Computed example of a mutant assay.
Amino acid sequence: MSPKLLAYIEKDSWIHRLTGSTKLLCFLMWSMTAMLSYDTRVLMVMLFLSYLMFKISRIDFKEIAFVFYFILAFLVINNLAVFLFSPYEGVHIYHTRHDLVKLIGPYTLTWEQLFYQFNMTLKYLTIIPIGLIFLATTHPSEFAASLNKIGVSYKIAYSVAIAMRYIPDIQRDFIEISQAQQARGIDLSRNEKLLKRLKNMGAILMPLVLTSLDRIETISYAMELRSFGKYKKRTFYSERPFRKQDGFALLGMGGLMILFLWITFSNGSRFYNPFL
């Protein structure tokens, strides 16, 4: 298991040197563009650019592989659910029907449905790398400062920052408790049957919950002793000043957003239709 899970990974890259506010705004613009567009041409270009930015960030894939595969698993489940509950959504969108394979019952696989779900998958794959880059290159304290800078209450911003810090702590505690329980003879390996392994997991989850509750109580006492929430505003030690490279990043992302949305809606619809 990776030593870090959705945690800040310190590197020396151009993306790391951007302020948290800049990265947050760029991420929001990128996500909004990907969600609005169903133009395959735009999504393919965005997919290429997203993985190019991942390379620029210098984040090793193995450092975020667990999270990436976890999201992909949910993406597969989502695709299956879309086909199960709306097998002809593509037909309704593109106003044509080309049957590919007749399945059981009322289900027939069509080219339109495949193309629709292909575009839907592209949308997620363009956002996932950028989201992982944002989380891996932004320090939690700086993230809180960036949220507060764009108008979010510092109480909410600080809560989000604590949650981001808490994820690696939970993972570390899980590993330590798991190793301690295995040293006491509780087998969690593949040698045991699945049901037995699930039952043995209870010996880990209960201490993990109690440890988490104890940490929450400690943090709440520390914040209360420091009069957290007494004033309407506060400053952040990790907040960094806005620089030229931040302006270039925002202008570049804003320009890409306008260009991609113009291409998307140039034919009067946000759906690219190759079946006409």
Rank of each mutant, 00 (worst) to 15 (best):
L210A: 12
T211M: 02
I219M: 11
F248L: 14
S220R: 04
R240E: 13
S212D: 06
I219T: 10
A249P: 09
F260H: 10
P274D: 08
E217F: 04
E239K: 04
D214K: 12
S212I: 00
F265Y: 15
Y272F: 14
L225N: 14
L251C: 11
S269C: 07
N273C: 06
P207M: 06
A249K: 02
R243V: 09
F228N: 08
F236R: 01
K232P: 12
F271A: 04
R226H: 03
F271E: 10
D214N: 10
G254P: 03
S227M: 05
F236I: 05
S238Q: 02
N267V: 10
E217H: 07
L259I: 13
L256P: 08
Y221W: 08
K232H: 11
S220W: 02
T211Q: 05
L251A: 15
L250N: 11
Y237M: 05
G268S: 13
S227H: 10
I219G: 01
Y231S: 15
L208Q: 02
I204T: 00
Q245T: 12
T235D: 13
S227V: 10
K233P: 01
A222D: 03
P207H: 01
A249W: 03
L256W: 05
I263T: 13
L256V: 11
V209M: 12
L210W: 06
A222V: 01
G254N: 13
E224F: 00
L213W: 07
M223D: 03
P274Q: 10
I219R: 07
G254Q: 13
S238P: 00
F260Q: 09
M253V: 15
L256F: 10
I219C: 05
L213F: 15
G247F: 08
R240A: 05
F265E: 11
L213Y: 10
S212G: 03
S220D: 05
K230Y: 03
F265C: 11
D214M: 09
K233D: 11
Y237V: 09
K244E: 09
L251D: 06
F228D: 05
Y237L: 10
G252H: 13
P241V: 00
F236Y: 11
N267L: 11
T235F: 02
G229N: 04
E239P: 02
G229S: 00
L251Q: 08
L208A: 02
L208V: 02
L261P: 07
T211I: 00
T218H: 10
G268W: 06
R226C: 07
F248V: 13
S238T: 01
R226I: 02
K233W: 03
G268V: 08
G268I: 10
F260T: 11
Y221E: 14
L210G: 00
K232M: 06
Y231N: 14
G247Q: 06
M206E: 12
A249V: 03
